[in-house]
Design a protein around this nucleic acid. Structure first.
Lengths: 213, 213
DNA sequence: AGCCTTTCTGGACAGTGTCCACATAGCCGC
DNA sequence: GCGGCTATGTGGACACTGTCCAGAAAGGCT
C-alpha cells in the first residue's frame, strides 16, 4: 500500500508485499475504468515493479482480474450489510424480514451507482469467473452477496411473508430484477436518467419484487 | 459477403462492399466470442483486406463494435417479433395484451440463450454506446426492442390490465427483471443451471413482473 | 557460513489499435 | 477518349498489451 499510488523507487530488491500492492492497484484501476482497465502492466507500474514480477503472484491477467472481482463482490456484500445494520430491530419478524429484503436491494443498487467501475468488474460480462474461494468475496459477516439475499428470503419464508412454496429459487427472481436495474442504471438505457427519477424507480422495483415474488 | 468467410484473394483492387463485409465479419466474431472478440484486425483479415482499410469505413474499433451492437439489437427485436407473431389473435384485448408482454420477455430470453455472444455484444458492459441511429437497431416492424416493450405495455394499459397510474416507467421495471435474468443465465450465477430448471424459472419471473408491475 | 528457493529483472515476441505517407483505380468533366 | 480528382486500399511504423525464457539478487534454512 505504501508505494501503490506513486512509486517511490524502493531500496530493497524485494518488494515485500507485492501481491497486495498489485491487487490494490487493480482495484483502483477497476474503480476508475472498469474491468477493461485492470491491466497487468499498469498494475505493476503502480507497484513500482517490472511487468513480469506480477507472474510470481498471479498466473495471468485474468487471474488478477479475478482477484479484483472477488474484492468487488466483497465490497458489494459490505454495502448490503451496512443497509441491514441500519434497520430498526424493534419491528415484527414479518416487517423486519421484508425490510431486510429491501435493504439488500438498496445496498446492491447503492453500490452499483456509487462504484460503477467496481460493480462492472464484479458482475460485468466477459469470459467470467470460475468462482473464487468463497471467503474472498464475502463481507464482514462472512457471507457473499448471494448468501445475504438467501438469508433475507429465508427470514421472509420463516415469517410467512413469503409463501413457503414460493421460497425455492426466489433468490434468482429477486436478484434478476435488482441486478437488471443496476445494469440499466450503470450502462444501459437509464444511464442518463436524473437522480430524482432514479430515486423513485428504485422503491417501485423493490415493491414489484416484494409483491410479485 | 462473398469473401467474408474464407478470403479468396480478390482480383479487383477495390473490394466493392467492404463496409458490409467488415460488419458481417464483426457479427460473426461477436457471435462466436462476444464483444471482446470483435477485433479490427481479424475482421479485416476475414474480409481479405489490410487492417488499415477498415478506417475508410469505421472510425475506430469502437465504431465497428457499435455497428455490431446495433445489428445485435435488431436481432433481438426480430426474436421478439417472432414470439409476438405466434400469438393467438382471437384472444380478448386484455388477454392479448398480457400475452404480448410475455412474448416480449420470452423472445428476449430465447435470444439471450440462443446467441449469448451477440446478446453480450448488444447489452454487455463496456464503455458503451452513444446510441446509434434508431433504424439500425430495429426489427422488421421498424421498432427496436425497447419500443416493442413499450408498445406491449401501452396495450396493457389500454386494456386496463395495467392500472394507468402504473404505466409510466413500467418498461424500466419489466426490462430490469428480464434483462437481469438474461444476464444471470448467460454469465452469472445461473450459467450452469440445467435447462429444465431454467424453463421453470422463466415463466415464474414473467409472472412476477406481470403481477408486480 | 553456504546453499537454494523465492522473488524480481531484462530482453524478447506476438498480437492489438491507430497514425502517416503512398499507390491505385474508379469516376467525372472536358 | 482522356486527364486529373478523390475515394479506397496498401505498407510501414509506433505504442501498448499479455506472456515466455533466462538470469540475477537476496532472503531464509540448514
Amino acid at each position: 500500500m505504501t508505494d501503490a499510488t506513486i512509486p517511490p523507487p524502493r531500496g530493497t530488491y524485494r518488494h515485500g508485499d507485492l501481491r497486495r500492492a498489485l491487487l490494490q492497484a487493480g482495484i483502483e484501476l477497476a474503480r476508475a475504468g472498469g474491468p477493461e482497465a485492470v491491466t497487468l502492466r499498469e498494475a505493476t507500474r503502480r507497484a513500482g515493479v517490472v511487468p513480469n514480477a506480477a507472474y510470481r503472484h498471479f498466473a495471468s491477467q485474468q487471474d488478477l482480474l479475478q482477484a479484483v472481482r472477488a474484492a468487488a463482490l466483497s465490497a458489494v456484500a459490505i454495502s448490503m450489510e451496512q443497509e441491514l445494520a441500519a434497520l430498526d430491530e424493534n419491528l415484527s419478524a414479518a416487517a423486519l424480514a421484508k425490510a431486510s429484503l429491501r435493504a439488500i436491494g438498496i445496498g446492491y443498487l447503492r453500490f452499483a451507482r456509487a462504484e460503477p467501475g467496481l460493480f462492472r468488474a464484479a458482475f460485468g460480462t466477459g469470459p467470467q469467473s470460475g468462482s473464487t474461494s468463497n471467503a474472498e468475496q464475502a463481507g464482514s459477516t462472512g457471507l457473499n452477496p448471494f448468501q445475504l439475499l438467501s438469508l433475507a428470503l429465508d427470514r421472509m419464508a420463516a415469517a410467512a411473508v413469503l409463501p413457503p412454496e414460493r421460497r425455492a429459487g426466489a433468490e434468482y427472481l429477486a436478484w434478476s430484477a435488482v441486478h437488471g436495474l443496476a445494469m440499466l442504471l450503470i450502462n444501459g438505457l437509464l444511464r442518463r436518467m436524473d437522480d430524482q427519477q432514479i430515486e423513485s424507480l428504485i422503491p417501485r422495483l423493490l415493491e414489484m419484487v416484494e409483491t410479485g415474488l
